[in-house]
Amino acid sequence: MTSVLQAQALGKKYGKRWALRDCTVDIPAGHVVGLVGPNGAGKTTLLKLASGQLEPTAGDISVLGGRPGGTPAQLARVGFVAQDTPVYAGLTVADHLRLGARLNPRWDDGMARERIAQLDLVPTHRAGKLSGGERAQLALTLGLAKRPELLILDEPVASLDPLARRDFLRGLMEATVEHEFSVVLSSHLVSDLERVCDFLIVLVDSRVQVAGETDKLLATHHRLTGPRRDPDRLPADQHVVFQRHTDRQSTFVVRTDAPIHDPAWTVTQLSLEDLVLAYMDKHAAENRRVALEVQR
């Protein structure tokens, strides 16, 4: 499995504050990867580092085997749609396409025009007059028509209404099917990711809590509910992700490859959202870190 993005102990400091610290992550190629985590987890910083917008303060990062943003060739291979999908308010839609054509050697003009026509965007309209959804689509068109090997999108749909959000993600999906490229997409809304992503990474406090193909994650995580029990008394192959106890009852979210036969438990399937929330729980995250280090 080749990687589109590899980071080793990656860190970025703004003044005295670390926006991302000691982040180690390996994102495989050929997936639509959802990067999810609470606000301030370092998602935007990680993606800006990956697109070469920022220089790391510490550690290493390589994207498609190269240093991000180092050369025009590297820039051409990685597309980046930034948060809030910025476009030039004073330039028209057609100007934006021309900008893309002038500044990118692999620009796919036919694709760009076709997309603009499909979206019913008027080429002579100024981008500043577009709705949020249209603006996001224009920014996506610029990212797609550049024909990158990796397209990075930072919270592209965060400010869109549900309809525009659906259209945007559908456009993205269609493009990934038509032209093979990898996608890394960040969001704090799991429901968005569920629709498009086949690989999920949960980032909390710069740390990767879990990473894996969505199907596999859903198949190996279970919620156990039953009489109160100490986590130490669970089978060794069941890794506790999350636990909550009342006087009589215990609820665990565990990860295990083996089936669960213990009749004391009521086993329920997790939705992707539940799974992500379980990993985002701060206290649980602290415990897990200790556990992971012991395992090593």
């Binding site: 917008q53 025009p72 060739a73 051409a76 910025p86 500044l103 920014a139």
Partner: peptide, 14 residues
């Protein structure tokens, strides 16, 4: 306007 994020990601070194 955030457009530096747009233009600095075209295939032109900044």
């Amino acid at each position: 306007a955030g457009t530096h994020l747009l233009v600095w990601n075209q295939s032109v070194a900044r």
